[in-house]
Design a protein around this nucleic acid. Structure first.
Lengths: 375, 375
DNA sequence: TGCGTCACCGAAACCGGTTTCGGCAACAGG
DNA sequence: CCTGTTGCCGAAACCGGTTTCGGTGACGCA
């Protein structure tokens, strides 16, 4: 009926224009040029006059043209995205590091109009398959490899496929590998030196997951510190494999219920350190006085623990940004060997450390008294 | 010279094969078919005989063929990726939610061989530009919109561009919007009911950022609880704008130094609640006894705070997975109106709440005594 | 005037897939 | 035996860009 009013106001608003994407052909038509010329004008080829270059740029602006990432990628081979594969296999052990890390990466790549492509793997085999998929599908131009292991199959895969990557951490065979890492070994050494300076002589160590590359490094740093300070290393006080509070709790408990307990414990991970503190408190100890604890990572929980945890904080956002920047450089041709960076963790002095309240024997007596006899 | 030994073992290992990607043409050649036929065989067209379909699948398997995501995307229009834009404008207020959230999303999309594309914006205008860029470049097939605001320009943009999206949170005008949200208003109401049941009659409220959609909802939930419990609402005890511990601290301090301080405070965010606890402690109060505090979010710091924070925990991983699943459904054609989900936060009873130790007047006296007179 | 340069742009191939269209052989039905 | 389906596949267009290759007109110079 209302043929005379084919579109009501409502219709105009609703159906509006479907806003079809404007392609390079539309642009070329509007300009009376061929799409090849338009493409070259937009990409800074020298055989285009300054005049038409400006005409094209202006028209592109007003028409809101932006090249399709995939149409471009198919010819240039560049997806303008970097990949990050999360492996949730190892429980939530990756948790504390993720937020700032992703933020750092994403910020760095977004600044150059690239994107970050995230995929999740739920097992080790799935992890490799995921890398292969992203690689074969050409979804990314390079990878950031978190949580490097001592011998890391991902490195083989990517080297063989000639796909750029940067390690967050180091690995056994570094040939062809760019990397950013935080010098955990230095932090561990400094932790010992700090404690030694306060008067501690019996210091225990709670290490992290053995397959990860940082584990031997941090242990070595700890031992190095002991050596430099002239302290004896009690093999029974060197433990490893704690990546959660519970695991840290268990290892610390074993140390503390020995005849000669340590007066200080250094943990390779804050998560473990938190468990160490809990164990000490379960033994009736006052953390920071009876037992000193120093962690590593700088997770937010540490600041709210009682006492607040003294730790070495790593700037994960900075690490992420550095990694992203390096990866872009790597993709653009810089040699892997020229892309290695070692950051330092920052000591955050809080309340879980202090001078020893007594020697190991005195501590043993206190623990004995507080702990309900197990047999 | 050594023409007779053109490649040493080293060379063989090093230069190996460059491992050129195997394309659909390679596959077609190897099979003696045309690429069109191969494509149809792989994509389940019915006009391909079962025999050749199997031949193609087998050969694809052995040759390790996988279709290029972009070459496919250019024709089908599907990038097989969903977008998430992080806005770091609002400081690190987004922090607590990110890790599990991304994990949940990524896990859900990875299960279908899609990916998550992350970009970061550093301001509000940059944010809109980033959405537009991802949209124009066709990098993603849909968006998850975190931190919805009451009036949200992103919704307009995406509706107009006809690009699927799902809100994490709700917004003022929900037409055409799919969404997942956690019913914060319910939690706030339950918090009041819990406190009222313990005997509290003067309860304060510390709200979050006003522009966000959850702010009025949670406040309304709080007021609803007060109403249902027959408690009087003191306007001076209703505050808002706290998204950090410091801001929570400031607001709580103002409430506590009034003539008639509350015996309990409900906070819309754990971050703020943590500040409330600190303020109470600065006033010489024992949180959990002298003042009850209940938060919302379930951030990890809360578990380590002293006393550990009673809160309503939201399962961000589940929310992320739900969002991703819905977005995929939306992209595949489900109506937005059929994609709405309201989750519930889970009450985590810890140590920051309890029955009131006395009435408001008694509390005021204690605070007066503990606080150094300011004038 | 004739010829070589150079600046600038059009035409077309190409990237790696998907999708449409048409043709051929085999087979069934009349 | 002829025709009409049907099953199956080849050929070619197409998606939206990039890049190579030539060709044209203006200009300089002999």
């Amino acid at each position: 009926m209302s043929e005379s009013a084919p579109e009501t106001a409502k219709n105009t608003v609703r159906e509006a224009q479907t806003e079809r994407r404007v392609t390079i052909n539309d642009l070329a038509d509007a300009l009376g040029l061929t799409k090849g010329t338009v493409s070259r004008a937009l990409n800074g080829y020298t055989d285009i006059s300054e005049t038409t270059r400006h005409r094209v740029a202006a028209m592109a602006e007003t028409m809101g043209y932006r090249a399709s990432a995939q149409a471009r990628a198919i010819r240039t081979g560049r997806a303008h995205s970097i990949g990050l594969v999360l492996n949730v296999d190892a429980g939530n052990a990756h948790k504390p590091f993720l937020t700032d890390f992703i933020d750092g990466i994403s910020r760095a790549v977004s600044a150059e109009n690239w994107t970050l492509t995230v995929a999740t793997a739920i097992s080790e085999t799935d992890e490799m398959a995921t890398y292969r998929r992203l690689l074969d599908e050409k979804k990314v131009d390079g990878f950031i490899l978190p949580r490097t292991r001592i011998v890391d199959p991902r490195v083989d895969l990517l080297l063989r496929a000639n796909m750029p990557f940067v390690l967050y951490g180091r690995t056994g065979e570094m040939e062809g590998c760019a990397s950013v890492d935080v010098a955990g070994e230095l932090a561990m050494r400094h932790a010992v030196e700090l404690l030694s300076g306060l008067g501690h002589r019996k210091i225990g160590y709670v290490g992290g997951g053995a397959v990860y590359n940082y584990a031997p490094l941090r242990l070595e740093g700890f031992l190095d510190g002991m050596r430099r300070c002239g302290l004896a290393v009690d093999p029974d006080l060197i433990t490893s494999g704690a990546m959660t509070p519970d695991e840290g709790h268990a290892l610390a408990m074993r140390m503390l219920t020995r005849d000669a307990p340590p007066t200080a414990i250094v943990a390779a991970l804050d998560q473990a350190a938190l468990g160490v503190c809990a164990a000490a408190q379960a033994c009736g100890l006052d953390v920071g006085r009876d037992l000193s604890v120093i962690g590593y990572d700088g997770i937010p929980e540490g600041a709210y623990a009682r006492p607040p945890l003294t730790t070495f904080a790593v700037d994960r956002r900075a690490a992420g940004s550095a990694l992203a920047g390096m990866l872009l450089a790597r993709i653009r041709g810089t040699r892997a060997e020229d892309l290695r960076q070692l950051l330092e963790a920052q000591l955050v002095l809080r309340g879980s450390h202090g001078p020893p309240a007594g020697d190991s024997a005195a501590l043993a007596a206190r623990i004995e008294a507080a702990t309900p006899a197990t047999a």
